[in-house]
Computed example of a mutant assay.
Amino acid sequence: MASEPFAAFVDVGGYRVRYRTTGTGRPVVLLHGTGRSLEDWEPLRAALPARRLIALDLAGFGRSQPLPDLRLGALAEHVAKTLDRLGATAPAHVVGNSLGGAVAMRLAVHDPARVASLALADSAGFGREVTWLLRALDLPVLWRLLLRPDGYGARTAERSLFHDPAFATPDRIALARELARRPDAARTMRQVARALGSLSGVRADRRGNLLAAVEALDIPTLVVWGDRDRILPAAHLTHAATALPRARTHLFARTGHLPQIERAAEFAALLDEFWAD
């Protein structure tokens, strides 16, 4: 399928998936976090102009339709089917942020021949600690109040993702509010959060099983983190180094949960070096 500079849609098993693809060569698949969209990858896209980048709105997020099952396995399988529909069948470098990191790892376990390498940015799956907002989604009634699509909530949520508040631009806040207003957006957010954890944090059994399976694959892996991440604390990078001892690690200074935005040029340089090796 020919590359195109703007987002488009493809039908995957009867569900509409939004994607954006540019460039040529080995595919680089970009998977965003919970409640986010492919727009989170635009700064990194600009920093990697020579790469074939395929950014997806995960099922139920951005402008992609939700699946009946939004657990990690189902999300990963849907990503694989989407890549098939886009003709991206060669082994790909897969880059995941937050939830997208956990989906990337599950994709590697589900279909290791599809994954040439993993790059995980502030990824879910490495530690129990997580922001109180995601834990509170496990509570009846309260989750509806927390996920109301109003301006205050969108501003607060967006600013929590960055160390430098200047990155929480009016455009990003407006997009966050728009996506939060989509039908079933709140229910999807809660469903995914509860599949990963509970009020006490990310479930240890699911974490351990996934990480053990990824380590057994011996896929080249890079794990990066922002030292000021308020969603998944930087201590998770230590957990990652323990669980995946062969992985490369990097800690970005003065950076929050989205290093692909706050440190796009530095992250791109790390990725180029990692892929070259």
Score class of each variant (00 low, 15 high):
residue 111 D to M: 05
residue 123 S to V: 10
residue 107 L to Q: 13
residue 191 Q to S: 13
residue 187 R to I: 04
residue 158 E to W: 04
residue 122 D to L: 10
residue 137 L to E: 01
residue 150 D to E: 06
residue 110 H to W: 12
residue 183 P to V: 08
residue 179 L to Y: 01
residue 151 G to H: 09
residue 187 R to F: 07
residue 147 L to W: 10
residue 96 G to Q: 10
residue 125 G to S: 08
residue 196 L to R: 12
residue 167 F to W: 03
residue 177 R to C: 07
residue 157 A to T: 12
residue 104 A to R: 10
residue 122 D to S: 15
residue 156 T to E: 13
residue 144 R to M: 05
residue 129 E to N: 13
residue 113 A to E: 15
residue 122 D to A: 13
residue 132 W to K: 01
residue 119 A to K: 07
residue 122 D to T: 11
residue 96 G to R: 07
residue 134 L to W: 06
residue 193 A to H: 00
residue 176 A to M: 04
residue 198 S to G: 13
residue 126 F to R: 04
residue 143 W to Q: 01
residue 173 I to M: 09
residue 191 Q to E: 15
residue 136 A to K: 04
residue 129 E to I: 00
residue 172 R to D: 03
residue 122 D to R: 07
residue 145 L to H: 02
residue 181 R to F: 05
residue 195 A to F: 11
residue 192 V to Y: 04
residue 134 L to P: 02
residue 144 R to P: 10
residue 132 W to P: 13
residue 168 A to H: 07
residue 148 R to F: 01
residue 113 A to R: 15
residue 139 L to Q: 15
residue 124 A to Y: 00
residue 104 A to Y: 09
residue 170 P to M: 08
residue 120 L to F: 11
residue 191 Q to H: 07
residue 201 G to H: 08
residue 171 D to G: 11
residue 183 P to Q: 01
residue 119 A to H: 02
residue 123 S to F: 05
residue 184 D to F: 13
residue 115 V to Y: 15
residue 114 R to V: 05
residue 163 H to C: 14
residue 102 A to K: 04
residue 129 E to W: 05
residue 95 V to E: 03
residue 111 D to P: 01
residue 147 L to Y: 04
residue 140 P to T: 13
residue 109 V to D: 02
residue 188 T to L: 03
residue 134 L to G: 10
residue 193 A to V: 07
residue 127 G to L: 03
residue 164 D to F: 10
residue 116 A to T: 14
residue 177 R to E: 05
residue 101 G to F: 08
residue 197 G to L: 10
residue 178 E to L: 08
residue 109 V to H: 14
residue 119 A to E: 04
residue 191 Q to K: 01
residue 194 R to P: 00
residue 160 S to I: 04
